[in-house]
Amino acid sequence: MASERDKVPVLVAETDDVRPFARLLRGIGLKHHASMTISGAGFEVTVEEARSMSATAWVPANLFTEFTFGDDEPACFEISLDALLQSLNIFGNAGGGAGVVPSVGGGSKKRRWAGEGEERDDEDGWRARGRERRTGMRLTWLGTGYPLSILLRDDAKGPVTNCELFTLEPDELVNQAFDEANRSVYLIMKSAWFRDALLDLPPSCQRVTFRARPQGETVADSRTTSVRARKLAESGSFSIFAEGDFGTVQFDYPYDAEVMDAFECEEAVTFSYHASHVALLGRAVQHSAKICLQIETTGFLSVQVMMPLSENQPPELNNGILDFKMNALDEEEEDE
């Protein structure tokens, strides 16, 4: 019988810089355990919040310098996302900063995200003597029942450490699929616009309302309607509204090339969501390029966060996507 040392790994993933991998995982770090699915296409890491919201990090194989998966069928198990992120940042140069995350609808106690510790470096990494340090990684997995083995090297000639993470039987996830056939709203927006709105949400608000208006919407009385309102009606628009203890905020985004790359809306819709769930998107969009926001006719929301392409990277590839899905509040919840 072959020893564990002689066994050929089912999975091998190598990279010279763990930061892109860690950045995707931190974006869904709202829970400390996650379900990880591995296939030839890469990793799919999913967490759920109170079974009413799910977040998935799609980590493509092209994010690694080497990625091989030897099974025909995908493999799935549960891991400690907290332990994985802390392992990736074991040398302190994997960009473990928490960043600016909006906090709404909750108490004063700070939420600890997976991978956060006492001290963390900023997202740009730690620099010494004008030279950027990076952490290289070789991740291997021998198959069902075996731990994830992570070999980490601090810089090209730095020290090496090996971490092993237990793999567990995964819990059953809801992870409701988005039904594009019943889609009522579709838009692609620059992340900066969406991020600024999340940062300005009132800390005391309990729900956040998304409104979409189609192009060419009829204006009741053009003589008494403001120029801005008429422009929003003509072009079509997406709005974010929230009400707190000290007033309301509203952000209106017209279908304009400076703001959106795409916008589809057949009829006016208005749906509200838990403010605490919407606020969790703040961390995910922090270093992203664009978001793709879709809403079903039932109000079921999907927000896909797209990471920027690396320099000289072919456009058909990607650097990963974060996908957040949540149900709209029903009328009774809105009235509470």
Rank of each mutant, 00 (worst) to 15 (best):
R51E: 07
R51F: 10
R51H: 13
S52K: 13
S52E: 13
S52V: 12
M53R: 03
S54K: 04
S54G: 15
A55R: 09
T56C: 15
T56I: 04
T56G: 07
T56N: 07
A57Y: 03
A57C: 09
W58E: 14
W58G: 13
P60T: 02
P60C: 05
P60H: 02
A61W: 03
A61R: 14
N62C: 15
N62S: 14
L63R: 01
T65V: 10
E66V: 12
E66T: 14
F67D: 00
F67W: 12
F67Q: 02
F67V: 05
T68D: 05
T68R: 14
F69D: 00
F69M: 00
F69R: 01
G70W: 01
G70C: 11
D72G: 13
E73L: 15
E73P: 03
E73V: 14
E73A: 14
P74R: 04
P74F: 06
P74V: 06
A75R: 06
A75N: 01
C76A: 15
C76Y: 05
C76E: 14
F77T: 02
F77H: 10
F77G: 08
F77C: 11
F77D: 05
E78P: 06
E78R: 15
I79H: 11
I79A: 09
I79E: 08
I79M: 07
S80P: 05
L81R: 09
D82E: 08
D82P: 03
A83R: 13
A83T: 07
L84R: 04
L84H: 04
L84W: 00
L84G: 01
L85I: 09
L85E: 04
Q86C: 14
Q86M: 10
S87A: 15
S87W: 01
L88I: 11
L88E: 12
L88G: 09
N89A: 12
N89L: 02
N89G: 12
N89P: 02
N89S: 14
I90A: 13
I90P: 00
F91R: 07
F91G: 02
F91E: 02
F91C: 03
F91T: 01
G92D: 03
G92V: 01
N93S: 05
N93I: 00
N93Q: 06
N93T: 06
N93L: 06
A94P: 06
A94H: 04
A94F: 02
A94D: 03
A94G: 13
A94C: 03
G95T: 04
G95I: 06
G96P: 12
